[in-house]
Design a protein around this nucleic acid. Structure first.
Lengths: 83, 83
DNA sequence: CGTCAATATGCGCGTTCGCGAATATCTATT
DNA sequence: AATAGATATTCGCGAACGCGCATATTGACG
């Protein structure tokens, strides 16, 4: 399932969902991306000042990618994803 | 056209493409997102320490959204986008 | 070639990152 | 209830942010 994100919190929640799906701990992911467990924690919490490098390293570590696209109209189903 | 991004540079390039598509200057976008033209410049250049907040503010200003998804296999066509 | 808009780069400042290291808190699971 | 594992939070540090402001540098066009 893809995740739509329009806020740092939603980005963090998306990362967390995929990480858990892969049965990895924050420490595991941290090692893959050469970051501390504490840093992964802040990223997943949606800290807005997190650096872009941290986000992309995390995505790489989880074998994910980012798509930038025009905002979609919200269907009832898509609204679910935002919460 | 959607943009796939796996590096800060690709994120920046995507933003720039959509901004130009909308005929906005860096200054225009900066005003929409309450940031300096210089900050937009760094974001588009792919500065890896750019803050997540800046990225999301820019996306909002351009009426874009982010999708997080598993990496796709690269088709010949998709490879073009990465350069 | 000249001009003007757009973009990139510089300075000093206050703030906050991510770091190592440690610790607190929460969450199973038994 | 007790323990172990996972996650959240804190300290001090060096580095780099984004800011206002100002100034190169680049690009497009007549």
């Amino acid at each position: 399932m893809d995740t739509i994100a329009r806020t740092p919190q939603q980005v963090g929640a998306g990362i967390r969902r995929f990480r858990r799906q892969k049965k990895l701990t924050q420490r595991d992911l941290g090692e893959k991306m050469h970051a501390r467990q504490a840093t992964v924690s802040k990223l997943e919490a949606g800290e807005p000042a997190t650096q872009l490098r941290i986000l992309l390293d995390a995505l790489a570590g989880l074998d994910l990618e980012l798509v930038i696209r025009p905002r979609t109209k919200l269907t009832a189903e898509a609204i679910e994803d935002l919460f």
